[in-house]
Amino acid sequence: MNKRFIVKPELCTGCRSCELACSFTHAIDGVRSLTRINPIDGGFKDLWVPVTCLQCDDAACIKSCLVNALKRNPVTGAVELNHEVCVNCMACVAACPFGCAILDTQTNLIVKCDLCGGDPACAHFCPTKALVWELIKKAVKKTG
């Protein structure tokens, strides 16, 4: 996929629309899921950082998973967790250096960002465009 997920903390107002979008999108049987994205106070005035999975190239979560429940989606590039396979051993939760695999204590499932299968809901709903899902070409043009 020639799109990528970009986070622009400078535009984030901490409104938490992304959390709601995430939570509803990943709801199971109408029960909202734990959000995979969290705007966290960046430590400076009016600065919020929407923290979510960076889909690392050399992902510690994939390496830590002993049952191959975590796999990279070759289309979206996202590291996806298959809940049917996951045995809840918490290895990925402990191994992720960014804390982006999280245990949803309500459902007892480990959750992590899967880029909504190629159309991240959070980006849709971000009112300030702090989260963008954009074509890589365009991005290259902009920076280049």
Partner: peptide, 21 residues
């Protein structure tokens, strides 16, 4: 990697990205 919990790791990441921003 294992020495901090996930919440503190996220906070750490927010801090780093915050500084850059």
């Amino acid at each position: 990697y294992f020495e901090k919990c996930d919440a503190c790791h996220r906070k750490e990441l927010a801090g780093t990205m915050g500084r850059i921003a």
